[in-house]
């Protein structure tokens, strides 16, 4: 219990720090830039004897992206397995104390846990309901994201449907990408 116990004893503080660590990695990932390769390198790269071409930055950013993803996967499991272990421990304790209790009853005791993992799914459901309410559901289903949002804004309910666009933006990450509803890779949109 020396290792897992440390986490359980300091859960709040360590989880708060986890959010900071993951947000930092997401920010670093979002800041990466990938540019189309030019036909030739800038002339000053030749005259200065730089000796490298544009694929260097491309490969550096690629390597950095892979490295960041690897770190985020480690953070993902930093708390996940502890949560499952705690649930298993709780499950075993309850079963031992109340042998006739159904598994489902124990599961219900921990339901309603507020986790950022469920946020993307909740947001998508809210947006879907809003789209139906505003009568823009069909418009949203055709074309690319930009096309669908533009068509939605131009729809008869345009004024109100801009609410859908705003709602979309409110749950989007700072870089404009939408949360992944499966929650995998781990999503930390808050």
């Amino acid at each position: 219990m020396e290792r897992a116990g440390h986490y359980f004893a300091n859960w709040g503080e360590m989880l708060e720090n986890w959010h900071k660590k993951v947000d930092q990695k997401i920010a670093e990932l979002s800041a990466l830039e990938f540019h189309e390769l030019p036909d030739v390198v800038p002339l000053e790269w030749i005259t200065s004897g730089k000796g490298l071409d544009n694929t260097t930055d491309l490969i550096d950013s690629y390597d950095r992206a892979i490295e960041l993803i690897y770190k985020v996967w480690q953070y993902h499991f930093e708390f996940l397995n502890l949560g499952y272990a705690a649930y298993l421990d709780f499950f075993g304790f309850v079963k031992e104390t109340f042998p006739s209790i159904p598994d489902q009853a124990i599961a219900k005791m921990v339901q309603g846990q507020d986790s950022v993992l469920f946020r993307p799914d909740d947001e998508i459901k809210k947006l879907a309901k809003l789209a139906v309410e505003l009568g823009v559901a069909d418009t949203l289903k055709s074309g690319s994201v930009d096309e669908a949002l533009a068509a939605t804004a131009a729809a008869p309910n345009g004024q109100k449907s801009s609410g859908w666009k705003m709602a979309t933006r409110s749950c989007a990450r700072p870089n404009g990408s939408l949360p992944n509803a499966t929650g995998s890779p781990p999503n930390t949109a808050r």
Binding site: I69, Y70, W73, H76, F77, S184, P185
Partner: peptide, 25 residues
């Protein structure tokens, strides 16, 4: 298929490797 609903593209295999390695760390 809850966590991985669609086939992995070969390019995305590092995600599978990271996930399985980190799960067992």
């Amino acid at each position: 298929s809850q966590h991985w609903p669609t086939p992995f593209r070969p390019f995305d295999m590092s995600m599978v490797e990271f996930a399985t390695k980190c799960l067992g760390q």
